[in-house]
């Protein structure tokens, strides 16, 4: 049987998992589990009080993360992870709210919520696992699918231009924007720890392999081939202009921390505006205390 049970060593990620639900449903070689490893290490490194942390995810392969982590997690309706998270943050401003979802959920079905949360600079940490396709529903073209790749809805090749997510969220107003691939596990951990320190809308895009749908249809090999491609073709360019970091099917992947800036967040702006307009008459409601014990 397992070696770990014999010598009571414990995987560092184990305390963050609902072990009874493991093994998970993700395909062999899917990168989502790797991002969960990095997320667990980031939680350990940043010493966040887990009782002040909430994880919200939408629908899709990445949306399953909410079901596998042993945190206060919330599996919401399709595309609406950010609205649920916004409500959570506004009702209880002390919470650290993490949105953990996929590219289809965040940028297609929930695209409007993504740009408006970035515009308002709501204090959310958004982790977007981008596998370049709608994976759970059978490999349809997503807004992030690169040109000329084959999908089940574009059997002769994708001809629509794809979204460049870092550019989109920077233009909308995010304060922290980074992109890494699942090959860069330590860098993802560091980026997540940095995002936890940041006040405002932080966005981390993680390019992840999808061996079952994206790679298979495009004859790009298995997940290990994808990881080797990330290793070979990714170029770290911190502070690169996000307009230049678009993805192509087989070209370079520009990774790094693109944006790290300061902007007042939604609640700071709200307080400032009300104080300016109402002066003495503006009294903040006492903070809601939820005694869940």
């Amino acid at each position: 049987m397992s070696d770990s049970l014999i010598n009571d060593l414990v995987n560092p990620v184990e305390p963050f998992l609902r072990s009874d639900r493991i093994p998970h449903i993700w395909c062999p070689g899917c990168g989502i589990g790797t991002t969960v490893n990095s997320f667990a290490r980031a939680l350990i490194d940043s010493k966040i009080d887990l009782r002040s942390l909430a994880l919200v995810s939408g629908i899709g392969c990445t949306g399953r993360v909410a079901g596998y982590v042993k945190l206060d997690s919330f599996h919401t309706t399709h595309g609406r992870a950010i609205p649920f998270a916004t409500g959570l943050k506004l009702a209880n401003p002390k919470l650290n709210v993490v949105v953990y979802s996929g590219d289809g959920d965040l940028s297609a079905i929930g695209g409007n919520h993504l740009i408006h949360a970035a515009r308002r600079n709501i204090d959310l940490k958004v982790i977007c696992v981008n596998n370049l396709i709608y994976a759970m529903t059978g490999g349809q073209t997503a807004p992030t699918t690169p040109d000329h790749s084959t999908t089940s809805t574009n059997p002769y090749g994708v001809f629509e231009p794809s979204f460049n997510l870092p550019h989109l969220v920077e233009a909308a107003g995010a304060v922290y924007v980074a992109r890494w691939t699942t090959f860069h596990v330590r860098q993802i951990t560091k980026a997540m720890s940095e995002a936890f320190q940041k006040k405002g809308f932080s966005f981390i895009e993680i390019i992840s392999p999808c061996p079952t749908l994206y790679q298979r249809r495009n004859k790009m090999g298995d997940a290990l081939d994808a990881m080797k491609y990330y290793k070979e073709k990714s170029k770290v360019r911190h502070g690169a202009p996000t307009s230049e970091v678009g993805m192509t099917m087989t070209g370079e992947i520009i990774v790094g921390k693109f944006v790290d800036r300061e902007r007042p967040d939604y609640q700071t702006m709200m307080r400032a505006q009300y104080t300016e307009s109402l002066g003495e008459r503006y009294v903040e409601e006492p903070e809601m205390v939820c005694d869940c014990s």
């Binding site: 995987n11 990620v13 589990g33 790797t34 490893n37």
Partner: peptide, 13 residues
């Protein structure tokens, strides 16, 4: 622990 960081199935550390 790089194996543990990469493992998508939490199976090794």
């Amino acid at each position: 622990d790089l194996c543990g960081m990469y493992c998508p199935d939490f199976a090794i550390f």
